[in-house]
Amino acid sequence: MLDISSDIPLYKQLSKILYEKIAKGEWKYNEKIPTETELCELYGISRMTVRQAIEDLKNKGYICKKQGLGTFVTHPKVGQEILSFRFYDNDMNETKQVKKIINFDVIQAHEKVARQLELSGSDQVFRIERIFYNDDIPTVVPISYIPYKECPGLTREMVQENGLYNSLGSFGRRPDRANRLFEAVVVKGRPQELMGTPKNTAGLHVERISWSQDTRIEFCESYMRGDMIQFFSEIQNL
Rank of each mutant, 00 (worst) to 15 (best):
G61Q: 05
K58P: 01
E31R: 12
L168K: 02
N166R: 13
V113P: 06
Q67H: 10
W211K: 10
R225H: 07
P34H: 09
L194S: 05
E234F: 11
E129L: 05
L2Y: 04
I143T: 15
L154H: 04
E20V: 07
F232W: 15
N179H: 15
E55T: 11
P142V: 09
E111W: 05
D3E: 14
K100H: 06
P76N: 06
T37V: 04
T74V: 10
R51Y: 11
T201G: 01
E94F: 13
V206K: 01
F85C: 12
G226V: 08
G153L: 14
F231R: 03
D56C: 06
F232R: 03
G203Q: 02
T155Q: 03
Q192M: 10
Y165L: 13
K21F: 13
S5W: 11
G44L: 12
D136C: 08
D3Q: 13
G79W: 07
Q192K: 14
M228R: 13
D214N: 13
T95Q: 12
G25Q: 07
L42W: 00
K77F: 05
N103D: 13
N90H: 04
R225Y: 11
D105W: 00
M228P: 01
N200I: 01
I217E: 06
R127L: 12
D176K: 02
M48N: 14
I235M: 09
S15P: 06
N103I: 01
L83F: 09
A114R: 09
V78M: 11
H75T: 05
R115P: 00
H205G: 02
L194V: 12
L194Q: 12
G163Y: 02
V106P: 00
P9W: 09
P175F: 08
T155G: 02
K99S: 07
G44H: 09
E157S: 01
I22S: 03
I4D: 09
D176V: 10
E234N: 14
L10K: 03
S170K: 14
L154K: 04
K28S: 09
D214E: 14
I33Y: 07
M1D: 14
T74N: 07
S6M: 08
T71S: 09
K149D: 11
L39E: 04
L14H: 07
L117K: 06
E234L: 12
K77Y: 05
Q236S: 15
N59R: 13
E161I: 01
S6V: 10
K58H: 11
I82A: 15
N166V: 14
T49N: 08
Q160M: 04
V140N: 07
I17F: 06
L69F: 06
I107V: 15
I128L: 06
R208G: 02
P175V: 10
I131T: 11
D89I: 12
N30E: 11
K12C: 02
E36I: 12
L238S: 12
E41A: 15
E38A: 15
I131E: 02
I17K: 06
I137Y: 08
L69D: 02
D176W: 02
L119F: 09
S84R: 04
N134P: 00
I131A: 05
